[in-house]
């Protein structure tokens, strides 16, 4: 379990992370979402004790990360892919990290095989592609077979095969019952595997919720209703406190009343219903809706929305 309380990091006057509190529960995959520059990487460095918080605290399994003598057994982390000396072989890179935590050479060979780099174990890391570097980073994270994994934008810059590999890996980690904190700026990447979501924007917490809960709430959910007695129905629904907007195709979008209620009202007043359907916003839409204000650099909205409405 990872627990942050009032976590704050300022660089001069600019706050990268501001009063962030969240819990990453054990045995679940938690998606960590936010636009670029929202403070995701900073938060992850704070968790690992690489950066010191200006205020607040964060603990891993109840203790600050820096209190662990062999942290690789507790937490495996992939921060940036190119965090290795280019002149070292993949095997030696991992061996040097393994030795510091008393991990055996045999385990180094195991993780290399696990990520599919056993064939290039003796090759220098400097010649690795981004995908191979990412695999090497994952291998390092798995060295101590930790229960908690922190992966920062693991699919960034990968080719489709690499993306698929990471997805499969995260799913298998989740199936093992491990705790995974997975960051991305794309909802589509996280939604596949995550049970819970932490969404931040401009360093602040926007939402801390489960995927289903996020879908249930939000303005994108409505009932689509069609009836030949459109005006009468509108009047009755409004009388019951629902909000109703007429659409250009003669249908009505209703929110604030359940489908059951709409059906009952229609029956009570003898009105015909030609359509009564529930519409949910997609996770992507909910995410954009939540982070819309927190994006630093906007493209013109009509361009964005025409691309997304498929």
């Amino acid at each position: 379990m990872i627990e942050a309380v009032g976590l704050t990091k300022r660089y001069g006057r600019a706050a990268a992370v501001e009063d962030l509190s969240f819990v990453v529960p054990s045995g679940q995959v938690t998606g960590f979402l936010g636009p670029n520059g929202a403070g995701k990487s900073t938060t992850m460095r704070l968790i690992l004790g690489l950066d010191a918080p200006t205020a607040g605290r964060v603990t891993v399994n109840g203790r600050p990360y820096t209190a662990y003598r062999r942290p690789l057994f507790e937490v495996g982390a992939l921060l940036e892919a190119k965090a290795a000396h280019g002149g070292r072989s993949a095997f030696n890179h991992l061996l040097c990290l393994a030795l510091s935590n008393g991990i055996s050479r045999a385990r180094v060979a195991d993780v290399l095989e696990l990520v599919g780099l056993d064939g290039v174990a003796g090759k220098r890391v400097g010649g690795f592609s981004l995908g191979m570097s990412q695999r090497l980073g994952i291998a390092a994270a798995l060295l101590g077979d930790p229960q908690v994994l922190i992966l920062d934008e693991p699919v960034n810059g990968l080719d489709p095969e690499g993306v698929l590999w990471i997805r499969t890996l995260v799913k298998s980690l989740a199936a093992d019952g491990r705790t995974v904190l997975l960051s991305s700026h794309l909802m589509s990447e996280v939604a596949i595997t995550a049970d819970r979501l932490i969404i931040i924007g401009r360093g602040r917490l926007i939402a801390h919720t489960s995927v289903t809960e996020l879908l249930r709430t939000g303005s994108g959910n409505f009932l689509r209703v069609r009836s030949p007695q459109r005006d009468q129905l509108t009047e009755r629904l409004r009388a019951r406190g629902a909000s109703v907007t007429g659409q250009s195709d003669d249908s009505l979008h209703v929110s604030g009343a359940s489908a059951d209620v709409v059906g009952e009202i229609a029956r009570e007043h003898g009105l015909i219903l030609q359509e009564l359907s529930e519409h949910h916003a997609s996770l992507e839409q909910r995410y954009l809706e939540l982070t819309g204000d927190a994006v630093d650099y906007h493209a013109p909205t009509h361009l964005v929305s025409s691309g997304n409405r498929t």
């Binding site: 460095r45 690992l48 004790g49 690489l50 990360y65 820096t66 209190a67 662990y68 003598r69 942290p71 690789l72 982390a77 921060l79 940036e80 190119k82 965090a83 290795a84 000396h85 280019g86 990290l97 510091s100 935590n101 390092a140």
Partner: peptide, 18 residues
């Protein structure tokens, strides 16, 4: 300095926070 230059220092400090 080679650790700082290559980013290895983060992997190092994540493995040994002391």
């Amino acid at each position: 300095t080679s650790e700082y230059g290559t980013g290895m220092i983060r992997a190092t400090f994540a493995a040994v926070p002391q």
